[in-house]
Design a protein around this nucleic acid. Structure first.
Length: 222
DNA sequence: AACCAGGAATGTA
DNA sequence: TACATTCATGGT
């Protein structure tokens, strides 16, 4: 079994059509990618709607807005001071370095675009890759906590691998296609949310036959 | 490399 | 009800 086989198993178990909301609006995807950090989508969605209601869902508006106006609107996502600063920082970069034209940034080649995204305080590897795949349509694989945990339980990694090392494994195993990467990540999150949490629900888990963790659990129970 | 930022939801006693 | 854990992380 390899990463391609894992994709097939997950694809048979979950449906991920239009998993990331509003993929047709790149700016909203980026705002969502920042706000979703370490929260649930329900909380991020509330914050996005609050921003929309206030007319703060454009880079110009966020750039011009006071941080103290942003913070209460995105409060339900947690880390609201840091996230408000991240949003403002990104939008400031857009107006200063790209004349407010997001499309120019999104058209940069993958490696250069990733460097630019990572230069923003508050945008790390995972958020940068989420923006690259879901907003820019670039084949940059998103490695999240669910993915790392699943690979660990499958016994395919030791646990001390870096983000980029795990990313390279997926990149080398798959065709360099943004839709493939996007679907795979969505499947991994779907699986993580239902079966591969910190507190696992192994009943009905489609990877149970491969998973060392499940085997250990069963031994413990019996 | 452990620790912190934080509200909201969910789990446990 | 009180208390603990976890979440589509990132920075120090």
């Amino acid at each position: 079994m390899d990463l391609t086989g894992l994709f097939d198993i997950l694809a048979q178990s979950y449906s991920v059509r239009d998993w990331w909301p509003r993929r047709d609006d790149p700016f909203e995807v980026i705002v969502g990618a920042i706000l979703i950090q370490r929260t649930t989508w329900a909380n991020a969605a509330r914050a996005i709607e609050a921003l929309r209601d206030e007319g703060l869902l454009t880079s110009e508006a966020i750039h011009a807005a006071d941080g103290s106006r942003l913070e209460p609107l995105i409060r339900p996502t947690g880390f609201y001071r840091a996230k408000a600063a991240t949003l403002k920082g990104f939008c400031s970069m857009l107006t200063q370095d790209y004349e407010g034209e997001l499309s120019v940034l999104l058209q940069l080649p993958l490696p250069a675009q990733r460097v630019v995204l990572l230069s923003n305080r508050g945008i790390g590897d995972e958020t940068a890759d989420a923006i690259l795949v879901y907003a820019a349509g670039k084949p940059s694989f998103v490695v999240d906590a669910f993915t790392r945990r699943l690979l660990l339980r499958l016994g395919w990694i030791e646990g001390d691998e870096s983000y980029v090392e795990i990313q390279r494994a997926f990149t080398e195993a798959l065709p360099a296609d943004a839709n493939t990467f996007a679907s795979y990540h969505a499947l991994l999150v779907q699986h993580g949310q239902t079966h591969c949490r910190v507190r696992p629900r192994c009943v009905g888990c489609p990877t149970a036959s491969l998973c060392d963790f499940v085997t250990v659990q069963r031994k413990d129970v019996q």
